[in-house]
Design a protein around this nucleic acid. Structure first.
Length: 672
DNA sequence: GAGCACTGC
C-alpha cells in the first residue's frame, strides 16, 4: 500500500541540500515581511525550493512561536507529514516529537515543546472539532494546496472563516503557479485588485510570492500524429530511448494495473531479443496494489549496464518520488474516480490528464540532471487539455464532507465559501442520504445524539449508523471488527496472479455463507487469536499483514469513541458464524444491524445471477472479489458500488431478508 | 473473473 510506503528515511541524504544554498534562502526577508504584513501569503514554489522545510523554520526563528503558539504545516499524505518532520528535526538538531513533531491518525509525535507541527490536512480538520478557531496555531501553512484534495478544499473554507475571527492568524498557502491567483482571490474576495503598472496582484489581505525551484530543464516532445494504441507506442518509445539516448532511467506513466502488466510483458519480450552486447533493460511495475516489498524494487539501483524502466500509475506523479529518472514517457491519461449524483454510483475510468498533471509528470525527468519527456499525444491534443483537473469536491460523494461541516458548526452548506462550490445535485443527494440515515433532521441540523456521534466517528455515514445501532442488536463486538475490516477497502488479501486457484481456496477457509461482512469478521478473529498477529501466518493464508494490523488500530480507535459516548463494549461473548456453533443467532443480528445503515444499498438477485436495485433500473454484478460471486442469494446489502468499463459492480455484500428493509427503513421504502 | 490515488486523535 502506498500509504505504508515509507522509504524516505533511506533517501534523505540524496535530497539533502545545505539549507543556506536552497533557493528559498534569498527570499527569507521578503517571506517574513509578507507573513508579518498580510494575513494570507501564497507561496508558489517548485519542487526543491525548500518551502516546506525552510519556511516553518524561518517563521519559528522570527518569533512566531513565542508565548506557546505553534506553527502547523499540513500535507495531503501521511507519509509526507512524517518524512518532512524527520528532515526538519534533523536540521534543527532535535528529535521528532520535541521542537518539531508530526500528528497523523494513530501516531502523535508531538509534545508541549513542539513549535513546528506537521500534520495531514484531515487531521487539522479533526482538531477544529475540538478547537473551532484552531487557537493554538499562530501560522497555518497548507502545503500542496494545488492538489485540491477533498480535505484541503474543506480546510481552506474553514480557514477563511477562522481568519475573519482571528485577524492575527497567518495563513500560508503553497501552490503551483497555475492556481496561485485563484487562492488569493478566494481569500481576498472582492477586495483583490490588479495593479496594471506593476502587474502585481493583491490587496490588504495577501500577496503571492514565487520561489524558483531546483529543477533541471526538461525537453518536451510530442507525437506528430495521434497514437492508435498508446501501450504499444509507449513500449516502442522506451526502446527508442534505450537505443538513442544517454544513460538514465525511464519512467512510463500508464493508467492501471492491466496496462502496466501488458507493457512489462512486452518490454521483457523485446528486451530478450536485444543484442547481448548492449545495455539491458529492467522493467519494473509500480502501483498501489503491490505489496510494500514489491514497490521497493523501483528504488534499488539498477545492476550494472542496466537501464530501469519503471512502469507506473499516477502514484509516481505526486505520491512517490524516484531519483535517477531522466526520461518520462507520458500516455496522457489517468484513471479517476467520479460520483454520479443521479445514480449514486462511483465510476472509475481513464480520462485525459490536465496540463498541470502533464507538467508535473514531465518534471519527474529533471530531478538529477537535464531530462526529456516524451508525450504520447500531439501538441494539438495537449492544447485542448484542461488547465487543471476537476477538484475532488466537485466529483465526490459529499455525505461525509457535509456531515463534517455540520459538526464544525457550518449548517448552511449552500452558503459556505468553497474555493469551487460542489454542484447542487451532489449536495442534495448527500443531504437526502443523511436525512434518511437520521443524521440530520427536517431543518438539516445534526440530530442529537445520533448525528453528532456519527460525525465524530472516523467512518463513512452508513457504517457510522451501523456502529451506533449495534448495541441495541447485541452485536457491537462483531460490528466493531467488521467496520474496521471494511475500512481497509479491499486490501485484506494480498493478490498473487500466479496462483489464483490457491488464493481462492485460502479465501474459502474463512468464507461464511452470510456474506463478505461475516467473512471479514472470521478473518479478523483468526488474525487476533489463531494468527497471533503473526506475519508468517498471514503470508501462509495470503492475508495482508500490514492491513490487518491497521484493522486492529482502527477497531481500537472506534471502540474508544464509542466508550466516550457511554456505549460500553463487552469483548467477551463467544462469536458465532455459520462456521462455528450458532449459539445466539449472532449472524442474523449482524445482518439486521448492517441493514440499518446500508438499506439504501440493497439489491435483489435475478434468475440469471445478476442483481437489480430496488427501483429495478440497474443491472449490477457481484465483484469477483466477493464471497457472493457465483453464489445464489435473494436480497443483499452492499458497501460499495463502482462502475468500471461497461459493468457496474457491487462489493462487500451480505445476505439479508427483504423484510429487514421495511423494518429498518420504512420511510425510505414506504411506497414500494 | 477484477481495482487510479489519498485520508480521519
Amino acid at each position: 500500500m502506498a500509504s505504508e510506503l515509507d522509504l524516505s528515511s533511506s533517501f534523505i541524504p540524496s535530497l539533502y541540500k545545505p539549507a543556506a544554498l536552497l533557493p528559498i534562502a534569498r527570499h527569507r526577508q521578503s517571506l517574513l515581511y509578507l507573513v508579518e504584513t498580510y494575513p494570507v501569503t501564497i507561496v508558489v514554489g517548485q519542487t526543491g525550493s525548500g518551502k516546506t522545510t525552510q519556511l516553518p523554520q524561518y517563521l519559528d526563528q522570527a518569533g512566531w512561536c513565542v508565548d506557546g503558539k505553534t506553527i502547523a504545516v499540513t500535507q495531503p499524505r501521511r507519509v509526507a507529514a512524517t518524512t518532512v518532520a524527520a528532515r526538519v528535526a534533523e536540521e534543527m538538531r532535535c528529535k521528532v516529537g520535541e521542537e518539531v513533531g508530526y500528528s497523523i491518525r494513530f501516531e502523535d509525535l508531538t509534545s508541549p515543546a513542539t513549535r513546528i507541527k506537521f500534520l495531514t490536512d484531515g487531521m487539522l480538520l479533526r482538531e477544529a472539532l475540538v478547537d473551532p478557531l484552531l487557537s493554538r496555531y499562530s501560522v497555518i501553512m497548507v502545503d500542496e494546496a494545488h492538489e485540491r484534495s477533498l480535505s484541503t478544499d474543506v480546510l481552506l473554507g474553514i480557514l477563511k472563516k477562522i481568519g475573519k475571527k482571528r485577524p492575527e492568524l497567518r495563513i500560508v498557502i503553497s501552490s503551483a503557479t497555475l492556481q496561485a491567483e485563484d487562492f488569493l482571490r478566494f481569500f481576498a474576495g472582492e477586495e483583490l485588485q490588479k495593479d496594471e503598472d506593476s502587474n502585481e496582484i493583491g490587496g490588504s489581505v495577501g500577496r503571492i510570492i514565487s520561489l524558483e525551484g531546483r529543477m533541471y530543464p526538461v525537453d518536451i516532445l510530442f507525437l506528430d500524429s495521434p497514437a492508435e494504441d498508446y501501450v504499444e507506442r509507449a513500449v516502442k518509445t522506451v526502446f527508442d530511448i534505450h537505443s538513442q539516448e544517454a544513460d538514465g532511467d525511464i519512467l512510463l506513466f500508464l493508467t492501471g494495473r492491466e496496462e502496466i502488466d501488458t507493457a512489462i510483458q512486452l518490454i521483457s519480450e523485446h528486451a530478450a531479443t536485444l543484442r547481448s552486447k548492449t545495455q539491458s533493460v529492467l522493467p519494473l511495475p509500480l502501483y498501489a496494489g503491490l505489496t510494500t516489498e514489491q514497490q521497493l524494487y523501483v528504488f534499488e539501483p539498477a545492476p550494472e549496464n542496466t537501464r530501469k524502466v519503471i512502469v507506473s500509475t499516477n502514484i509516481a506523479e505526486a505520491s512517490v518520488t524516484i531519483d535517477g529518472i531522466c526520461y518520462v514517457v507520458d500516455c496522457g491519461f489517468a484513471k479517476l474516480r467520479a460520483y454520479n449524483p443521479n445514480t449514486g454510483i462511483e465510476t472509475l475510468t481513464a480520462v485525459p490528464i490536465s496540463k498541470a498533471s502533464a507538467t508535473q509528470r514531465a518534471g519527474r525527468a529533471g530531478r538529477t540532471k537535464p531530462g526529456k519527456c516524451f508525450r504520447l499525444y500531439t501538441q494539438q491534443a495537449y492544447e485542448q487539455l484542461p488547465d487543471v483537473a476537476i477538484p475532488e469536491i466537485q466529483r465526490s460523494n459529499l455525505a461525509p464532507v457535509i456531515m463534517q461541516l455540520k459538526a464544525l458548526g457550518i449548517d448552511n452548506i449552500v452558503r459556505f465559501d468553497f474555493l469551487t462550490p460542489p454542484p447542487a445535485e451532489l449536495v442534495i443527494r448527500a443531504l437526502e442520504l443523511l436525512f434518511s440515515l437520521g443524521t440530520i433532521d427536517d431543518y438539516a441540523k445534526l440530530t442529537k445524539p445520533l448525528g453528532m456521534r456519527m460525525a465524530e466517528l472516523a467512518v463513512d455515514p452508513m457504517m457510522g449508523k451501523v456502529l451506533l445501532s449495534a448495541q441495541t442488536f447485541g452485536c457491537l463486538n462483531e460490528i466493531l471488527s467488521i467496520a474496521a475490516m471494511v475500512s481497509l477497502q479491499g486490501s485484506v488479501w494480498v493478490q498473487h496472479d500466479s496462483d489464483r486457484k490457491n488464493a481462492e481456496s485460502m479465501r474459502r477457509k474463512f468464507a461464511v455463507e452470510e456474506g463478505d461482512h461475516l467473512t471479514y469478521l472470521n478473518v479478523y478473529q483468526a488474525f487476533v487469536t489463531k494468527g497471533k498477529k503473526d506475519s508468517k501466518w498471514c503470508r501462509d493464508n495470503l492475508l495482508n499483514y500490514k492491513s490487518l494490523q491497521r484493522a486492529v488500530s482502527i477497531r481500537a480507535q472506534l471502540k474508544r469513541y464509542l466508550e466516550r459516548f457511554g456505549i460500553s463494549v463487552d469483548e467477551n461473548p463467544p462469536l458465532s458464524t455459520s462456521r462455528g456453533p450458532d449459539l445466539s443467532g449472532q449472524p442474523e443480528r449482524v445482518q439486521r444491524c448492517l441493514t440499518t445503515g446500508y438499506f439504501a444499498h440493497a439489491a435483489k438477485m435475478q434468475p440469471d445471477g445478476t442483481f437489480k436495485t430496488v427501483s429495478g433500473d440497474l443491472t449490477l454484478y457481484a465483484h469477483p472479489s466477493s464471497i457472493m460471486f457465483n453464489r445464489k442469494v435473494d436480497w443483499v446489502i452492499f458497501h460499495e458500488i463502482l462502475q468500471t468499463g461497461d459493468k457496474t459492480y457491487i462489493r462487500d455484500i451480505s445476505k439479508i431478508e427483504k423484510s429487514y428493509l421495511l423494518e429498518y427503513a420504512p420511510e425510505y421504502y414506504r411506497v414500494k
